[in-house]
């Protein structure tokens, strides 16, 4: 009796709680995507029109995020900046996940010598903090959005690669892979049917969280003057431009930063929900 009760009650409750966080973060991401695709629909005014009579106005109903030193509407600039910021984030996270997939698979599946070498490479890359690796690349390639994508992508790859490796290894040593071997399935069949899908699924979560983290890293580079430069409305560039006015117009840096935080948080929350629903095995 109680067993049945338990089984029917618990999942329903859990699912409802999952949905609130999931919905909130999904809607947030959706709004940002809309801003990236059709900024002119969402932005109240043109992000590039200067009007020095309205320079450095604090946030108001007319200008939700205030205006910058050239009188441009900051809210519109943030919306127009979404495209480039998201592109950098998606590009960097995509590159990071791709490199991680290659390195992690080799480290987990290759023969002893090759796997050993790749494992060492991952270890060495891991010794370089993301930001330092990015700075090193920028100093070689010069600063540009593409450099930023490569730098942040490669910088985050070793961490992801470790996760991929761990995932593949645990799948490879799992009971279901042994059961498949006992059924007489060929090695490649097992890889294709069990190991690869089970390793790929967490990557969706890693990628989602990675987009948010990459935007944070990229804007951090811009903040110290080594990312996308003003007058682009890319979020990092907005931070860079706003630094000069921190004492008299703090909204110029606080609000774009807040937008980045919200996006990163939404991406993390969404990624975590994907992860936990995958772990429960019912997604």
């Amino acid at each position: 009796m109680t067993g049945v009760l338990e089984r029917t009650v618990a999942p329903v409750q859990r699912r409802r709680r999952v949905r609130v966080g999931f919905l909130a973060s999904a809607v947030t991401i959706g709004v940002f995507l809309a801003a990236a695709v059709t900024p002119h629909v969402l932005a109240p005014s043109d992000p590039f029109t200067m009007d020095f009579t309205r320079a450095l106005q604090s946030p108001s109903l007319a200008h939700w995020f205030g205006t910058d030193e050239s009188g441009r509407d900051l809210f519109s600039r943030v919306i127009y900046g979404a495209r480039e910021s998201l592109a950098i984030g998606v590009g960097a996270a995509g590159l990071g996940v791709l490199v991680a997939l290659v390195l992690g698979s080799i480290a987990a599946l290759a023969g002893r010598i090759l796997a050993g070498i790749v494992n060492r490479v991952i270890e060495v890359l891991f010794a370089f903090p993301t930001l330092l690796l990015a700075l090193l690349l920028v100093s070689i390639l010069g600063s540009s959005p593409l450099t930023l994508v490569i730098a942040v992508g490669l910088g985050s790859a070793p961490g992801y690669a470790r996760m991929v490796r761990g995932q593949i290894l645990s799948s490879k040593n799992s009971g279901y892979v042994e059961a498949a071997r006992a059924l007489g399935h060929a090695r490649f069949t097992i890889f294709r049917r069990h190991i690869l899908p089970n390793a790929l699924r967490p990557l969706i979560a890693i990628f989602t969280m990675g987009v948010g983290q990459s935007i944070v890293w990229a804007s951090g580079m811009a903040f110290i003057g080594l990312g996308v430069a003003p007058p682009s409305p890319e979020w990092g560039a907005l931070l860079d431009a706003g630094r000069a006015y921190i004492t008299q117009a703090s909204w110029l840096i606080v609000l774009p930063g807040f937008v980045i935080v919200v996006l990163a948080l939404a991406a993390t929350t969404l990624g975590k929900h994907i992860q936990s629903s995958l772990e429960k095995g019912d997604a």
Partner: peptide, 12 residues
């Protein structure tokens, strides 16, 4: 047939 069937099934 193993002791712990849960781990011997692919959760997907």
């Amino acid at each position: 047939v193993y002791q712990d069937p849960l781990s011997s099934f692919d959760p997907r």
